[in-house]
């Protein structure tokens, strides 16, 4: 699964992008989204929880949300005139019962 697949834009979780040189750096950019699962998913997950294993519904939900957070981070970077975000970090945290925040942040840079 590729995150933040935007044409002409690169994101990296390391400080450098192999084969490219960073010319300018602009500062921290963030992207976040808070999502809740619906009751149906809750009930299915509750059942699944008995036997263990992957909770597919949740996997998809969190993956979708992470994708959205990444998109928002890229939007912020683009609004600064950047064409890459480096040193990207992801975080997931439970904000309230049934709602989770997906958060992505990194440094907006311009690469050659």
């Amino acid at each position: 699964m590729t995150l933040g697949a935007v044409s002409g834009f690169t994101i990296s979780n390391t400080e450098s992008i192999p084969g490219r040189r960073i010319v300018e750096f602009y500062g921290v950019v963030t992207g976040n989204t808070v999502r809740a699962k619906h009751i149906g998913r809750d009930i299915m997950a509750g059942l699944k929880n008995v036997v263990g294993g992957e909770l597919k519904g949740y996997t998809e939900l969190l993956q979708d949300s992470r994708e959205e957070a990444t998109e928002r981070m890229i939007l912020q970077a683009q609004s600064m005139g950047a064409n890459a975000v480096v040193n990207v970090r992801f975080a997931t945290s439970s904000i309230s019962q049934g709602a989770a925040e997906l958060f992505a942040y990194g440094t907006a840079v311009r690469v050659e």
Binding site: A36, H38, S96
Partner: peptide, 20 residues
């Protein structure tokens, strides 16, 4: 509102400004 949203699922919009 966030509590209501948790029933139907989806983006919990009212939390976004708080976190931002």
């Amino acid at each position: 509102i966030a509590g209501l949203r948790a029933i139907v699922g989806g983006r919990v919009k009212t939390y976004e400004p708080l976190l931002e």
